[in-house]
Structures are given as C-alpha cells and as structure tokens.
Nucleic acid binder design. Structure first.
Lengths: 155, 155
DNA sequence: CTTGCTCCTCTAGTCGCTAGAGGAATTAGG
DNA sequence: CCTAATTCCTCTAGCGACTAGAGGAGCAAG
C-alpha cells in the first residue's frame, strides 16, 4: 500500500513524528519491513502518508514487544482486510502468554533478589547473603522451571 | 582461586552438572569469566572442584538475570571475602530495581494485550481490534513512560 | 578395527538495533 | 554568491550473550 506516495516527508521528519530513530528506519527498510520510498533528485528518501502510518504501526507493535517477524505478519494482514483475523489473534495471544510467563518469572526473581538484599548484613563479603545465595543454589526456594526469553520491551 | 585444580572433570561433565552448555562454558573461558583449566595430554579441558563451584555461581547469577559484567564483579568480590559487601549489595539492589521496573512495564503491556485479544471479534482483519489498536496509538491507554531494558532471564 | 561419542578450534550467525567513517546535499545566514 | 551548519547518504563494524556448524582429532566399547 505504498500507492499514493507523494513523498513529502524526509526521513528526519518521519523519525521525529514516529519516535523511531533515523538509522532504525533505514534498518526497517533494509529488512523489508518498510517499503523503499521514492527518492528526491538528490537521492534522499521521500516518504508519504502511508509510510508514516506503517511506521507508527511498527513502532507501536515494537513497544508492545512484538518481534519483527510477528510484525511482518501483522503488516501483511493489515494490507488484506478481508482475511480472517485468526492469525492476528493467535499472534497477540501467544505474545500475551509470553508476557505472562515473563512476569511470573520476574516476580519469582524479584522475591529472591529481595531476600538477598534484605539478608545482607552490610558487613564484609565473607558473610554476605548476596554472595552466599549466588554461590549455593540450595539456599534459594526458586526451583527453576524455565524462565523468560531474551527479548525485552522497547523504550 | 583455581589453586588445587586436579582436573578431574571433562567439559561435558561440568556442563551436565551445572546445566550450562558446553559452548557456553568455552565462551565464559574466552571472555575471562572462568579461568582456563589445565588440559589433558590429548588437549582436553580438565576441570577441578573450584571451577565447578565458580560455574554454579555464574549459572545461578545468570538465572537471576545478572549481566556478565555484574557477575565478573561479584566473582571478584567472592574471591576476597574480607572486603566490604557494599558493592555486592549495590549490584543486587540495582538489579532488583531493574527487575521491578521490568515487571511494571510488562504488567502494563499485559493489560493492553489482554484488551486487544478480548476485543477481537474473530471476524476478519477489517474490523480486528488487534490490528486496529496496533495501527492507532490513540486507541490505547498506555501512554508510554519508557519501558524495560533488552536483557531477559536466562533459561 | 570400526563405530560412535565427545572433544577441539574456528568462523559466522542470531536479534534489533547502534555507532562511526567519510562524503554529498540541502538550508540558513551573511 | 559563499560559507557554515545541518541533514542526509552508504557502508562497515559492534553490542550482549550466546548458538550453530564445519572440519577434524581423541577415546572407549564392542
């Protein structure tokens, strides 16, 4: 849907408008998430309204922690509104489940870290709870069951 | 403190015992987190008891989401027990704060994702809440205030 | 002796950017 | 018109913390 691309906006303008950094926009173009816009005589990218919308979509999805590949799928869906939204629903549900898993994992972590710092006698390392607990896994109640994935939430 | 390194364990054994994968152990050696152990005649790594403890420490700290650099510092502290544990305490506190920030951020996210999937009419994309909300930031209550950092929790 | 496992080193890839070099084009002011 | 500042361009390399795979050597069991 880069049809009526009049090319009114520079990359800097869309960057400022969307909150996505200039190199990141170029990166999105490179990986095919954002279509390559037409260029000015001088070779500069000239974006249209549709690109701005697409970028806003991407940005919001990234803020919500969706991975690039998921966003790619969601964008394809957005382009064909007559399709069933089952796929979009599944992606969102999966991601929600993942976020819930991460919250659970981080909450357990938080408890353990809190015990660590509370137990710290502020003396020296020899009797430090922090070091002790790290050294001996048996000292903690957290019997691990797998934890959160590497991805975080964009800021 | 890799003094009495008798070299009884192969990399595979310490990997199994610690739950850290073989290439990861070699990576830790490469970045200087784990000392390079002596080798057998055939050139294989032969670890001692102290290496196993160090690796357990690292693993547990990674599980708790500490970054490699933080772990490096914590290991140095562990090696000198007469030092003040203020630094260890600070590292743990910082990390706790970071975890709390991430939980808050993910909880806000979770709410938004939940609204997305609840609103989904399971029809087609044209009237899909998921796509709609992603396309229009104004549709959501989440007025962003910065979100969690990229690092996750090892698993 | 052969099979199959483990181990070795090395390079390159992952994800989602970010940083910097080195240069061209545009814009603002004088 | 000239200059200076800013923005833009492409390109390569780097981040963190691994992970994957190639290509080969060692080693224990049958």
């Amino acid at each position: 849907m880069t049809s009526e691309n009049e090319g009114r906006f520079s990359i800097g303008e869309v960057a400022r408008a969307s909150g996505v950094k200039v190199p990141t926009i170029r990166y999105y173009e490179e990986i095919g998430l954002l279509p390559a816009p037409p260029r000015t005589e001088g070779g500069r990218r000239a974006y249209g309204e549709s690109d701005r919308h697409r970028l806003a979509f991407i940005r919001h999805a990234r803020e919500l922690g969706f991975e690039i590949e998921a966003i790619r799928t969601l964008l394809q869906l957005q382009d064909r509104p007559e399709q069933s939204c089952a796929v979009a629903d599944a992606i969102a549900r999966d991601h929600l489940a993942e976020v819930e898993r991460r919250i659970a994992s981080l909450t357990a972590l938080k408890a353990e870290l809190a015990r660590m710092v509370e137990g710290c006698s502020h003396g020296h390392v020899g009797e430090c709870r922090v070091i002790e607990i790290l050294a001996d896994h048996n000292e903690c109640r957290h019997h691990h069951h797998g934890a959160a994935a590497p991805a975080g939430v964009g800021g």
